[in-house]
Computed example of a mutant assay.
Amino acid sequence: MVTWQNIDTVMLDMDGTLLDLHFDNHFWLEHVPLRFAEKNGLTLEQAKETLMKRYRKAEGTLDWYCVDYWTEQLGLDIEMLKQEVDHLIAVFPYVVDFLDAVRSKNKRIVLVTNAHGKALKIKMDRTRLGGHFDRLICSHDLGLPKEDLSFWGELQTIEPFSKQTTLFIDDSLPVLRSAHAYGIANLLAVIKPDSKAPAKDVGEFKAIQSFRQIIPA
């Protein structure tokens, strides 16, 4: 699935790729509605209905991923609420083995995430994965989400990479399609980004069930 001798850089998404998306889905679909309902005197169902409308408006934009944006919009301390359920943050099996093996092959390893810096810090503090990367890059630092084709050109200016010898793994089809349109040749999707949810459609992309499948020998 990966011809490792042709790869010199590995770029990895975080949520739904390295980390189980169950945390994020539970947080936004259950925990935030619960706290929003408590704050505003709503039933849980009323809160969910209100929030889903707001989520849909922001989806695919940088605001969707922004802790500060949702703190302001909802009147809730999103960073604190994440910490209330951070015990649900989980690294997928074989991720550390994969990262160690890739490091042993002298590949450059870069985390490229849409997650806000505050969310990234919470997750790195919880998982201790940060030391496995040569660099951690948040799309907020570039002012564009990965779904935007212009993101990749901006990324090139701060983290030069070869389109032909870079492997990029992400669980989002819009992000993968953006990377493909930019010309990144080696792309992999993730079949089951949320361990508690059904497998997802991976469209036209090759995909992994587990990082065990692509650990370099």
Rank of each mutant, 00 (worst) to 15 (best):
S178I: 14
H180M: 13
D68C: 05
G153F: 12
T17N: 03
L129T: 04
P33M: 08
F151Q: 04
L188C: 00
D125I: 10
K200L: 13
F23G: 12
V110Y: 09
S172A: 01
F168R: 00
T127Y: 04
L136F: 11
T71F: 06
L42F: 11
D170V: 07
L176V: 08
L29D: 15
D170R: 03
K118R: 12
A47P: 08
T43V: 02
S104V: 02
K192A: 14
F92C: 05
R128F: 10
E84D: 15
Q213C: 07
F23V: 13
V112A: 14
K82H: 09
T165K: 14
D20Y: 08
L29P: 00
A58Y: 01
W152M: 06
D171A: 10
A58Q: 14
T61F: 05
K200F: 01
F133W: 07
F27D: 11
E49V: 06
T61Y: 04
L173C: 05
T165Y: 02
T3V: 13
K206C: 10
I208F: 10
A115L: 10
H87T: 11
A90T: 14
V67G: 00
Q83W: 10
L19Q: 08
A181K: 13
D13W: 09
L144G: 02
D201K: 03
K146C: 03
T17M: 06
L34V: 02
D97G: 00
T127I: 06
S178V: 13
F133R: 04
I184R: 01
L21Y: 07
D15F: 10
H26G: 01
L88I: 02
E45Y: 02
K200P: 01
I7H: 02
T113I: 04
E49Q: 13
I169A: 04
D141H: 06
A197R: 15
V102T: 15
R126M: 05
K53F: 05
D77S: 08
L42E: 03
I7A: 04
P193M: 07
K196E: 12
I78N: 02
T50Y: 12
I158H: 06
D86N: 11
Y69A: 09
A199P: 00
L81P: 05
A37Q: 09
H180L: 14
L155R: 07
L149K: 14
D86T: 03
I191E: 15
V112K: 12
L187F: 03
S162V: 06
M11N: 05
L42T: 04
D134L: 14
A119T: 15
A181C: 03
L74D: 09
L18P: 01
N106R: 12
L99E: 04
Q73S: 08
F168Q: 01
D100C: 07
L81T: 10
H132L: 07
